[in-house]
């Protein structure tokens, strides 16, 4: 630090004059803090409202969002209905092969008859001409 720089530093320090923190400056500072706090609160509130609005808009504009909200169609009724309501004869077809009518499972003939009458699914169903013929 040369002579000029030393003198420059001295001038900067010696030029300081005492300036008390007056009531006017204190009130101005408090007002500025209060204003800034209000501004921050308003900005935060506006940000929250904007975020909620954007979220709601995104939910509304989601592709197929409204259709997907609805519950799906009711589940199909079970295929095993009451044997008495079936229009098909409950009597065991005489032409059924004896190997399928197991003696340990007495309900198997009725279930096979019901399944052939209510649905087209072939669950170990014998051919129609053999089961319908009396």
């Amino acid at each position: 630090m040369d002579h000029f720089e030393e003198q420059l530093a001295r001038m900067m320090r010696s030029s300081q004059e005492y300036a008390p923190f007056e009531l006017r400056q204190r009130e101005r500072l408090q007002d500025a803090v209060r204003t800034r706090r209000r501004l921050r609160a308003a900005r935060n509130a506006a940000g929250s409202v904007l975020a909620v609005a954007v979220l709601a808009l995104a939910l509304m504009l989601r592709p197929g969002g409204t259709q997907q909200v609805e519950p799906s169609s009711p589940a199909p009724a079970p295929t095993t209905s009451v044997p008495g309501t079936s229009p098909t004869p409950t009597s065991e077809p005489p032409s059924s092969p004896p190997v399928t009518s197991d003696s340990s499972t007495p309900t198997s003939p009725s279930t096979t008859a019901t399944s052939t009458s209510t649905s087209t699914e072939s669950v170990s169903v014998p051919p129609p001409e053999t089961s319908i013929t009396p």
Binding site: S15, Q16, E17, Y18, A19, P20, F21, Q25, R26, L29
Partner: peptide
């Protein structure tokens, strides 16, 4: 602020 006002203002 009260203590350092003068120096900070300078």
């Amino acid at each position: 602020v009260a203590a350092r006002w003068s120096a900070l203002l300078h």
